[in-house]
Amino acid sequence: EEDDHMEFCRVCKDGGELLCCDACPSSYHLHCLNPPLPEIPNGEWLCPRCTCP
């Protein structure tokens, strides 16, 4: 299965362990989110761009 998510964080543009949005190709480091997440959430996760009205 091919993964179309970005291979770098949308905020800092660095690679590493990234959290991928379930609705778009964006990826983020947990510490780059505002507010930062302490751990990878269970289940579906939507990035700030997808949850913003």
Rank of each mutant, 00 (worst) to 15 (best):
E1P: 01
E1V: 05
E1R: 03
E1W: 03
E2A: 06
E2V: 08
E2I: 15
D3G: 14
D3E: 14
D3K: 15
D3R: 14
D3N: 15
D3A: 12
D3H: 11
D3P: 09
D3I: 15
D3Y: 15
D4N: 15
D4K: 15
D4A: 07
D4V: 07
D4S: 09
D4E: 08
D4F: 15
D4H: 15
D4C: 15
D4T: 15
H5E: 03
H5W: 06
H5S: 06
H5F: 13
H5M: 06
H5N: 14
M6C: 09
M6H: 05
M6S: 06
M6D: 06
E7T: 02
E7Y: 03
E7N: 09
E7Q: 04
E7L: 08
E7G: 09
E7S: 06
F8V: 07
F8L: 12
F8S: 08
F8R: 10
F8Q: 07
F8T: 12
F8K: 04
F8D: 08
F8N: 12
C9I: 00
C9Y: 00
C9A: 01
C9R: 02
C9N: 01
C9Q: 01
C9T: 03
R10L: 09
R10Y: 12
R10T: 12
R10N: 12
R10Q: 08
R10W: 06
R10I: 09
R10E: 10
R10V: 05
V11P: 01
V11W: 06
V11Q: 11
V11R: 08
V11K: 14
V11I: 13
V11H: 12
C12V: 01
C12P: 01
C12S: 00
C12M: 00
C12G: 02
C12D: 02
C12Y: 00
C12N: 01
K13F: 03
D14N: 09
D14I: 03
D14E: 13
G15P: 08
G15Q: 13
G15T: 12
G15A: 13
G15Y: 03
G16K: 03
G16V: 04
G16A: 02
G16H: 06
G16N: 04
G16T: 11
E17A: 09
E17M: 08
E17D: 05
E17N: 09
E17K: 11
E17H: 07
E17F: 05
L18K: 00
L18I: 12
L18R: 09
L18Q: 04
L18V: 13
L18H: 15
L18F: 00
L18S: 01
L19K: 04
L19H: 00
L19R: 09
L19Q: 07
L19P: 00
L19C: 04
L19N: 02
L19M: 13
C20N: 13
C20M: 11
C20E: 10
C20I: 13
C20S: 11
C20L: 11
C20A: 13
C20T: 14
C21F: 01
C21L: 00
C21I: 00
C21Q: 02
C21P: 03
C21G: 01
C21V: 00
D22W: 09
D22K: 14
D22P: 11
D22I: 10
A23Q: 15
A23N: 08
A23F: 01
A23V: 08
A23W: 10
A23G: 11
A23H: 14
A23I: 03
A23E: 15
A23Y: 15
C24M: 01
C24K: 04
C24Q: 00
P25N: 11
P25R: 14
P25A: 14
P25T: 13
P25W: 09
P25I: 10
P25G: 13
P25M: 08
S26Y: 11
S26W: 04
S26R: 08
S26K: 09
S26A: 13
S26H: 11
S26P: 04
S26Q: 04
S26N: 15
S27Q: 09
S27F: 15
S27E: 06
S27C: 10
Y28M: 05
Y28W: 06
Y28Q: 03
Y28K: 03
Y28R: 03
Y28L: 04
Y28F: 11
Y28H: 04
Y28T: 03
Y28D: 04
H29G: 01
H29Q: 01
H29R: 01
H29C: 07
H29D: 01
L30H: 12
L30C: 10
L30S: 12
H31Q: 04
H31V: 05
H31E: 13
H31C: 04
H31K: 10
H31T: 07
H31G: 14
H31I: 10
C32R: 00
C32L: 01
C32P: 02
C32I: 00
L33Y: 03
L33W: 02
L33R: 02
L33I: 15
L33F: 06
N34F: 13
N34A: 11
N34R: 10
N34I: 08
N34C: 09
N34D: 05
N34Q: 12
P35N: 07
P35M: 06
P35G: 07
P35W: 04
P35A: 05
P35R: 05
P35I: 07
P36H: 06
P36R: 10
P36S: 11
P36F: 09
L37C: 05
L37M: 05
L37Q: 10
P38F: 09
P38I: 02
P38T: 06
P38M: 02
P38K: 15
P38E: 02
E39P: 14
E39T: 06
E39L: 04
E39Q: 11
E39I: 08
E39G: 08
I40G: 09
I40C: 14
I40N: 13
I40P: 13
I40H: 07
I40L: 15
I40M: 08
I40V: 10
I40Q: 14
P41R: 11
P41Y: 10
P41S: 13
P41E: 13
P41F: 09
P41D: 15
N42F: 05
N42C: 12
N42K: 07
N42M: 08
N42H: 10
N42A: 12
N42Q: 06
N42G: 14
N42Y: 13
N42R: 10
G43S: 11
G43V: 11
G43N: 12
G43K: 10
G43A: 13
E44L: 07
E44Y: 06
E44V: 08
W45R: 03
W45S: 03
W45Q: 03
W45E: 03
W45N: 03
L46Y: 08
L46T: 08
L46M: 06
C47F: 04
C47W: 00
C47D: 02
P48V: 05
P48S: 11
P48I: 05
P48F: 15
P48N: 08
P48T: 11
P48E: 15
P48L: 02
P48D: 15
R49Q: 15
R49D: 14
R49G: 14
R49S: 12
R49W: 09
R49F: 12
R49H: 06
R49T: 14
R49A: 11
R49Y: 09
R49E: 15
C50M: 01
C50E: 05
C50Y: 02
C50R: 02
C50F: 01
C50G: 02
C50Q: 02
C50L: 02
C50S: 01
C50A: 02
T51R: 10
T51I: 14
T51K: 13
T51N: 12
T51Q: 14
C52M: 12
C52L: 12
C52H: 15
C52V: 13
C52A: 13
P53W: 15
P53S: 07
P53T: 09
P53L: 14
